[in-house]
Each structure stands twice: as C-alpha cells, then as structure tokens.
C-alpha cells in the first residue's frame, strides 16, 4: 500500500507542486523525485549542461519549505572542504592561552564542537529541519571524494575520529548532478536513483520559456522554440540549453523584437551559440523561407 512520504505524497503531487513553483517537470522527473523522497535515497541527475538539473534541487527545496545546502564540486575538493575541518588557528590560540593547564585537559577542550568547522555534507546531516542537499557537478571531483560520499549517501552518517559518529537526525533529500564528463563509480551509482534529463520537447520548452518570460509574444515564443530545436539537430559543438533559450527570449523582449526574421536571428544568435564555427553552421543550416 502506498505510504505518503514527508516530501511528496504521490508523483502527481510532485508534478503539480513543482509546476506551481515554476519548475515544469515531465512525468518521469516527477515520479523519480517522488521516489527519491519516498525511498529516502539520493537522486543522481545526469544530462547535458543547462537542462535544469540544479534547478530541480532548488525547486524541491522551494516547494517543501526545506533549506538548500549546496556542495559545489570542483577538482581538488577534499574532506576539509566537503565534510568538516578543525579550526586549527583557534586551537593554536587555545593552546597558547591555556598557560599551565595540563595537556589532557587542553586536549579534551580543543576537540569539541566549538572548534569544528562544519562543511556542507556535515551541515546537511546535522540539521534537524527538512534539508535538501545539493551535490553539484559530482563528475568534476576526484575519485577519492566519491569514496567520501559513499558513507554519507548510504548511511547518512559521518565519522569524526575525535568526536565519534554523527548520524543524521533527519535524512536530507539528496540530489547529485553530473554532466557525465566522467563515468561515476558503480558504487555511487548503485546507491542512487538515476534520472537522465534531456532537452524537453517543443511544447514543454515553450511552456518553460513562457513561464520564465511572461512578456514574450506568443508567436515569437513559438518561433524561438522552433529555431532552438532546429539548432539542436544541427550537430553543433555546443547545443543551446534551456537556460540559453530563456536568455534569448529575455533578449528579444529587451530589444523589443516582435518578429524573429533572419536579420533578428543573425543579430542575436550570440546569446545561444558560443562558438564561431557553430555560428556559421547555424546560419547555413537555418534556411529561412519568407
């Protein structure tokens, strides 16, 4: 029997609440988001840049009233930046100030909460309010960090040698995003639910663009989405993302362009295409009629 979870009560509930906050999720996204909440498993979202992977985590936080804790991954990220660190400067001060106190006492004193700098992973686990933990661009980290994530993701606990094991009071809703520049390890994938986000179909993209840029003329919006879709078919170095089509719509509104004719496209194409060779190819590929 389906049990209501504390995050979403059903896939439909997830879809409608996310839509109300401005994130238009398709059926698979809504179902997977609901499952991530109901099964309390981390959600790994993969897909090309700019299809709303990070936005999904933000939207979940928004609609459930949870706080978003974000860990931005980059290469060279280590335990000290991801999990926790001892505030050694403060510890040094404490030792110098201790005077003739015995070492045992000082030692007891300097490894306490007061000297602990919590980083995103530990922060998310220690919070007793609803939390959405976003681990952004996991594929950018080194393999060692994945090992670190394993303990956090499977048991939601962190072991600090001096303090003991800190277990989650309340399991956070974990979203990991990846651009798939590198294959994540099997171990991480096994612990996660997987969702592949791709470019949306024309109708959904139109809805997204209109919801983000309400001032956009409907006819221009339709044409814009059509052009963006044709650009994606052109086998470019970098296909335009949803974020970029929204930017394009904003540009058109700002420039008060009412008609997407070849000239207008040529003038503003720089908003969606960021390579010179793509630009040329697009102009060749987009043969406008009339």
């Amino acid at each position: 029997m389906p049990q209501p979870s504390s995050w979403f009560s059903s896939p439909d509930d997830a879809a409608s609440r996310l839509a109300a906050s401005g994130y238009l999720a398709d059926a698979a996204t809504a179902t997977t988001a609901y499952l991530a909440g109901a099964l309390e498993k981390p959600l790994l979202v993969e897909g090309p840049a700019g299809v709303g992977k990070t936005e999904l985590a933000k939207a979940v936080a928004r609609v459930t009233g949870a706080e978003l804790v974000r860990l931005q991954c980059y290469e060279g990220l280590d335990e000290a930046r991801a999990l926790y660190e001892w505030n050694y400067k403060k510890q040094l001060l404490r030792i110098q100030a201790s005077g003739d106190q015995s070492w045992e006492e000082t030692h007891e004193d300097i490894f306490t909460d007061e000297f602990l700098l919590t980083r995103p992973l530990l922060t998310a686990i220690r919070r007793d309010e609803p939390t959405v933990l976003l681990v952004d661009e996991v594929d950018k980290t080194d393999v060692e960090v994945e090992g670190l994530l394993l303990e956090v993701l499977s048991d939601f606990q962190v072991t600090i040698p001096e303090l003991g094991t800190v277990a989650a009071v309340r399991r956070p809703f974990v979203v990991l995003t990846s651009n798939a520049t590198r294959e994540l390890s099997e171990a991480v994938k096994r612990r996660c639910l997987y969702l592949h986000l791709d470019y949306p179909d024309a109708q959904r993209e139109r809805e997204i663009v209109t919801s983000q840029v309400p001032d956009l003329d409907e006819r221009v919006g339709t044409m814009l989405v059509e052009v963006v879709h044709r650009l994606r078919e052109l086998d470019l170095k970098k296909s335009p993302s949803i974020a970029e089509s929204v930017d394009w719509a904003r540009t058109l509104v700002a420039l008060e362009i009412r008609d997407l004719d070849p000239k207008a496209v040529n003038d503003t194409l720089g908003v969606v295409l960021k390579h010179a060779s793509d630009h040329e190819k697009a102009l060749k590929g987009l043969k406008f009629a009339g």
Partner: peptide, 24 residues
C-alpha cells in the same frame, strides 16, 4: 519503489524501474 507507487499507469512503472535499475 514499486511498493510506494500506484500501478495504474504503465509509464509510472517504467519510470520507477528506470530510476532504480538503469544508471547509464
């Protein structure tokens, strides 16, 4: 995952299987 879902739609079941089994 199937245990917490309603089975009235085939696409929901597909999404549940995909989320839990297909990681690539």
């Amino acid at each position: 995952a199937l245990g917490v879902l309603a089975w009235d739609r085939r696409e929901t079941v597909r999404a549940a299987y995909a989320a839990t089994l297909v990681k690539k």
